[in-house]
Every structure is written in structure tokens, then in C-alpha cells.
Nucleic acid binder design. Structure first.
Lengths: 223, 223
DNA sequence: ATATATAAAAGTATAGGTTACTTTTAATAG
DNA sequence: CTATTAAAAGTAACCTATACTTTTATATAT
């Protein structure tokens, strides 16, 4: 902005909303809150919060996520800003939208009891409030773009996993079935996975090797 | 956002900043204003403006662009939102950044005299205020992404142009030299250009055919 | 009138990557 | 020890990107 009449200008509430993706039981899931008041009581919303005076939007999103999940170093990326004058019936609120990726483990499944948040499969979401459906769709699109050029397994899978698990994650993100052979070839060509000596024999007699991300190679490849 | 204490929250000024790209004399250019007051007097800034109460950020950017250029239907895309608490020394201002593409013709070159705006080659920009350098860099990156998948000639070139002109535009956007033969093949494979009967003989004895975008095919290809 | 020079336009050959599909492998279960 | 399972490896066809070469059309010079 060029300096000009800062004082006569209207100010607005600024919030963040976050599409939090997780992966559980072979499905990509989204963390949602159920709204308890009118209007739109009973509908669901993304996780949100206000931007405080001492914070950037990124810092606000990080704070909200840490408070909710207890996790630090959550992967977070800005998606877009929603600013239609009447998008929120409660007042003029401009919302900066992010998406986040987190590993759903036992701890993270308890979010429901603590905060009333619930994981929903992205394939069958409930009705969302305001413009949150569009926020979700743009976030998923961004996640797909990200997953095209980088392996997103580290943010969504447990520390060790099989190629098949990784492929199922990708199947779930893109809603299609990747060819097992081609997927393996492609994924290993990134050169950022280390094969362990242990195998998962729960699904095949032969057994599938476990892999884990090599942090050093990840950094080198600017993943 | 979930409804919660709208009233106790701090409000902020919200602005838009716009990286306006144009193409002139074989160079990609950026439209800038020179700042007339301290702090940072003499440095240059992107084109900006406030978001009014009855506008979305997109509408604000469109209004500012129309007022500045007289053009309607300008190509505009949201890049990112900048929100660090102290990014603007004049006060807490959250800025939604866009990039725009416009055809520089005679009319558009007069911007300087009317508004004090000047076109700068992106290869040699002056020092920009605040975080505007970063805004520009993100905008150029977005433009490159866009140009990878879609022909951006319609937004930056005159109505008719030769393949060589289009290639020079791309050379300028990506700061590299595309192979003439390969570029031609690739560009025509999009199937959205119509060849005219007229030729440009100013640069070659043989003459290069003029082309124009076929709007219908453009729409079909979701360009 | 013919030759020359220019860059457009078309063509070619190689390499690399994607895709669909087949074969082999390892280990368990009957 | 044979059958079964999915992992893992391999293959062939196809498509695209890239570097490079050849042909074409025409204004200008001789």
C-alpha cells in the first residue's frame, strides 16, 4: 500500500481457517467442528481462530493447531484468502485459509472428547457452514498439487510404512487407483526413502518391506 | 471461524497489492509507483489500495486496476496474503496480493503522466518498499506456473502476433531461450491459435504468419 | 533476371518418462 | 510339497521433450 489516509479506513476482523487433513484406516480425513449456535447450528466447520495483534496469519494458524493437537512442527501451507463482504453472517470477517497435514495416531483420535472435533472422510463430508466447502475444495486441490511433486507420506503416515500403504494414501488423495508397479518405481525414483530390514506380512505371504523417509535426502531434494 | 466473541477482537486495516505485469519492447515489465513520503521515500511500490466495506479483496483489486488503466476484464489472480504484524511501519495492515496481466499499448504507456506510475523491466527493478520484493517474486513464480500450463499471450500480447513474438514473451517470463522449432510445435499443439493470412515481414524475408487466439477453443480447453 | 541472405517453418532422431501389462519371487497355509 | 498371495521386478509400446537439420518463401543485392 502507498501511504494514504490510514485513519479514515474501515478495519475488519481477520481470522484463519484450517483444513486439517489426516489419514486413518485407509482414508483421507478432514477434522471438523460442529457448530453449536444459530445460524447454521448443527452444520460443520473447519478449524478456525482469530489473528491476534502480535501474530501473522501463519503464526495464528500454528497456535490454533498446536493448542488443538499438542503437536509442534505441523506442516502448514497458505491456500487463499476469503473476503466476500457477507461471507460470515456474524460480521465482516476476512479469513486466511490454510491446509495442514497431521499423522493420526491414538492421541490424535482423542480430539473428539477434548474439543468436540471429529475426523470425517473427505469422500463423505457433512454440510459445511458459510464458504467452508469451497475452502475445503481449494485446500484438497492444493494438497494434490503438492503430492504431485513431493511425497507427502511423512506428514500423513506413521514413521515406518510399506509402499502399499503409501500407495493407498495416494489413491485416497487422488480418488483413483495407481498401478502398483508403476507407483513403486516412481516413488522410489525420488530417492528419499530408506528400506528397513523388517517386513509387514499381515497382507501378503511374501511380506512387504517397511520404509522410512531419509530426512537428509529429503532436505537435499528440497521436498 | 466458529462464532466466539466477535466483539472483543482487534480489527485490522486490509489492503490489496497488485503486481501488474506487461510486455513491451521484448521485455516483461512491472508497473510501479514511486513513494513520495517518508519512511522509505523514493523507493518504489506495487500498486495498492484499501479494501472497502462493500468489496471483496478481488473486487478491490479490480476497482484499483480499472481506475488506473481504464481497462475492464483484466486477468487477475490471488497470490498470497501478507500479514506480519510489523510489515507496514504505518500501522497494522494485512495485504492480499494479486498479480495482473495487461497489454501495454499506447494508452497504457501514458500511465506515467497521469498517475506517476512507471513500467520497470523485471530484470532490473529498483528497490521496493516493505515486503514488496517478496510479493513480486511470489507473483512472478505464479505467473510462471500459469504460463507452463496455459498460453498467457492473450493477456500480454496485441490481438495478432507471430509465434516468434510469443516465444520472445516466454523467453522473457522464464529468463531463458526456448528453441524456436520446439516452441512452435508445443504452442501449436495447444490447438487454441488461429493462423491468419497476413505475414510479418519486418524481421524475415520469408515472413512469419500472424496468429490470434481462438476464443472458443480457449474456453473449451479451460485455458 | 538471377543469386544471396534471412528467419520461418517443417522435419528427424534420440533420450527419458509414463503406462499397461507380464513374470518372478518369497513365504505362508493347507 | 503344492497352492496361494501380493510384493517386487521386468518388459514393451507409446508419448513427449529436446537438440539438431533441412526446406521454404521472399526481399534485397548483384
Amino acid at each position: 500500500m502507498i501511504l494514504e489516509s490510514y485513519n479514515n479506513q474501515e478495519k475488519y476482523l481477520v481470522s484463519i481457517d484450517c483444513a486439517i487433513f489426516g489419514y486413518h484406516e485407509g482414508e483421507l480425513k478432514l477434522l471438523l467442528f460442529q457448530r453449536e449456535k444459530e445460524p447454521e447450528k448443527g452444520k460443520w466447520s473447519l478449524i478456525g481462530g482469530w489473528v491476534n495483534p502480535d501474530e501473522s496469519a501463519e503464526e495464528a494458524a500454528t497456535r490454533v493447531l498446536q493448542h488443538l493437537t499438542g503437536l509442534h512442527d505441523i506442516f502448514l501451507e497458505q491456500v487463499s484468502t476469503f473476503s466476500k463482504p457477507n461471507r460470515d453472517p456474524g460480521g465482516r470477517v476476512i479469513s486466511v485459509v490454510f491446509y495442514a497435514l497431521i499423522v493420526i495416531d491414538g492421541e490424535r483420535m482423542k480430539l473428539s472428547s477434548e474439543f468436540g472435533a471429529e475426523w470425517w472422510p473427505v469422500k463423505s463430508l457433512p454440510t459445511l457452514i458459510f464458504d467452508h466447502q469451497q475452502m475445503f475444495e481449494m485446500s484438497l486441490e492444493r494438497l494434490r498439487q503438492k503430492a504431485n511433486y513431493h511425497l507427502v507420506g511423512r506428514e500423513l503416515l506413521p514413521e515406518t510404512f510399506t509402499i502399499t500403504q503409501l500407495r493407498n494414501l495416494y489413491n485416497s488423495i487422488f480418488s483413483k487407483d495407481f498401478d502398483p508397479g508403476n507407483f513403486r518405481k516412481k516413488v522410489l525414483s525420488f530417492g528419499v526413502l530408506d528400506r528397513l530390514d523388517t517386513k509387514d506380512t499381515s497382507v501378503s505371504k511374501k511380506g512387504a518391506y517397511y520404509y522410512k523417509f531419509n530426512e537428509q535426502k529429503l532436505n537435499e531434494s528440497e521436498n
